[in-house]
């Protein structure tokens, strides 16, 4: 119990940050017409590709003599890039089709 309270005190700002972000996420999506659900899912999919930032960070800190870490890091950056680039491009392609005449 004490540990839990301590954890909350130390990470107070982080907890606020997370809670507020959850509300922003819900608020931003609320009321979106069904028409846009597929592009939205695809766009959100591209955004979580931000995990690539973590992959790059690991890679920059890697010990260059550790071959396994280099291989894993390369793969992580590669997969993250696929997620980001593929995600944004395919969403753009979908949205490019929505035209009002």
């Amino acid at each position: 119990m004490e540990q839990l309270l301590e954890f909350i005190t130390i990470h107070r700002e982080m907890i606020y940050f997370v809670l507020l972000s959850v509300f922003v996420g819900v608020e931003v999506i609320g009321g979106v017409p069904t028409v846009l659900h597929t592009p939205l899912m695809s766009g959100a999919n591209a955004i979580h590709g931000v995990v690539i930032v973590g992959a790059i960070y690991v890679m920059l800190n890697v010990d260059p003599s550790n071959t396994l870490a280099l291989i894993l890091g390369f793969l992580a950056v590669l997969l993250g890039t696929l997620n980001v680039v593929g995600g944004f491009v395919v969403t753009d392609r979908m949205l490019g089709m929505f035209k009002k005449k």
Partner: peptide, 14 residues
């Protein structure tokens, strides 16, 4: 954090 949580909550709602 922002990107991840945003997609986490928006994705759950969706």
């Amino acid at each position: 954090l922002t990107g991840g949580i945003l997609v986490g909550s928006a994705g759950t709602l969706l």
